[in-house]
């Protein structure tokens, strides 16, 4: 089917909303509360458009696209409404981009850029209002636009049921349990809210100041912890060769973007200063550094010796539930084909 946007026809798949149809075709309509996972909310009102045959403005995130539909996204009326909505968001709270972690990947910033809003029109000074009580999650209430994606994610996706809206009107605020600091609430710090927040209101506390969003490269791989096999994107700063943050891969069939506190935040071990970087050989009870060649030759001679003296079955090998299939395959091949024993196992049972 086809939908006309601003007079031009575009192909659209069945079952898409007007907003999705626009995005599928590379057209930008500002929108803050919609996320493919949490679905249309119709709340932020930034995505309003005009649709032929429908009265007034319509939120493009809630209207199903229909064949032959004619949508206007750039009329003065539409742009005035979008501009006011985004201006009001920018005017409420304190949206200072300079050292915001989300700078460059902020959906509010993108909307402001698209609409050409240089500075908020209705800004009044406000007191800083943040919550850094949580180990891994930093919340800046002044950057919250009440889109509700975190609340939807917490309750409907990870179903941890910690976040909700409290109070009302201009005082509306995302609360943890009965408005506790996040760190003392029942939050398990899965970070789904961090992943869904369109602004810099809920962010990975420890990634602050590590690297600008445009400086990192995202590499998709698999989480190293439990057996669920969550797909995880590691955000790598190439200059420093460091992982600066991790996010769940949204369309992954295993985890739908979800991660747990370990998968999302516990990648420190990779860059740990405790990493071993040279082979060690025990000598007189203590370790000394050695070259790979020396280590290999010691191992092969010792294992060869023991095999000759006590038989292959006097050697045991533990492969690893944390290594790859290829490594485990090679390990058991080594034990069976090179050493000559079936004494190979790993901690599946432990």
């Amino acid at each position: 089917m086809f939908v006309t946007f601003n007079g031009k026809k575009f192909p659209v798949a069945e079952g898409r909303t007007v907003l999705e149809a626009a995005r599928d075709n590379g057209l930008f309509i500002p929108s803050l509360c919609y996320h493919p996972k949490t679905g249309p909310a119709g709340k932020c009102r930034a995505c309003v458009v005009e649709i032929e045959g429908m009265r007034g403005l319509q939120t493009s995130c809630t209207i199903p696209a229909k064949d032959g539909m004619a949508v206007t996204t750039n009329s003065p009326k539409v742009l005035a409404a979008q501009r006011l909505v985004v201006d009001l968001m920018l005017s409420s709270g304190q949206h200072d981009c300079l050292s915001c972690e989300q700078n460059g990947s902020c959906e509010l910033q993108n909307a402001a850029y698209f609409l050409g809003i240089e500075r908020p029109s209705f800004r009044v000074d406000s007191e800083p209002d943040f919550d850094e009580s949580s180990e891994f999650i930093y919340r800046d209430h002044e950057k919250c636009i009440q889109c509700g994606r975190c609340v939807a994610g917490c309750n409907n996706t990870v179903v941890n049921e910690v976040l909700d809206f409290g109070w009302r009107g201009h005082n509306t605020k995302v609360i943890c349990d009965d408005d506790l600091p996040m760190g003392t609430s029942s939050c398990v710090q899965c970070g789904e809210c961090v992943q869904l927040c369109p602004t810099g209101s809920i962010i990975d506390k420890r990634s602050r100041g590590q690297a600008r969003s445009w400086e990192v490269e995202k590499v998709e791989t698999v989480c190293p912890y439990c057996g669920v096999g969550c797909r995880i994107a590691l955000h790598v700063d190439r200059k420093t060769n460091r992982i600066v943050r991790a996010t769940g891969v949204e369309d992954a069939p295993t985890n739908q973007g979800m991660l747990c506190v370990k998968g999302r935040f516990a990648f420190d071990f990779v860059a740990s200063t405790e990493r071993l970087t040279t082979p060690l050989i025990r000598e007189n009870g203590n370790f000394r550094e050695a070259s790979w060649e020396e280590a290999y030759s010691l191992i092969s001679s010792k294992l060869g010796e023991i095999k000759t003296k006590h038989g292959a079955d006097s050697i045991g090998g533990f492969c690893s539930a944390k290594c790859t299939n290829e490594e485990n395959y090679l390990f058991q091949k080594f034990m069976r084909a090179v050493i000559g024993t079936n004494n190979v196992d790993h901690c599946a049972r432990l």
Binding site: V219, V222, G229, I243, V270, T278, P279, T324, N325, E326
Partner: peptide, 29 residues
């Protein structure tokens, strides 16, 4: 003898998860 090995984020290979899904690891750092 102790040999220094690499981390998951440093290598390519496959993991098989609990539902028997074989997935590809990509080298990140």
């Amino acid at each position: 003898v102790v040999l220094p090995a690499t981390a998951y984020a440093e290598k390519e290979g496959t993991f098989s998860n609990t539902e028997r899904r074989v997935q590809l690891l990509k080298k990140a750092v």
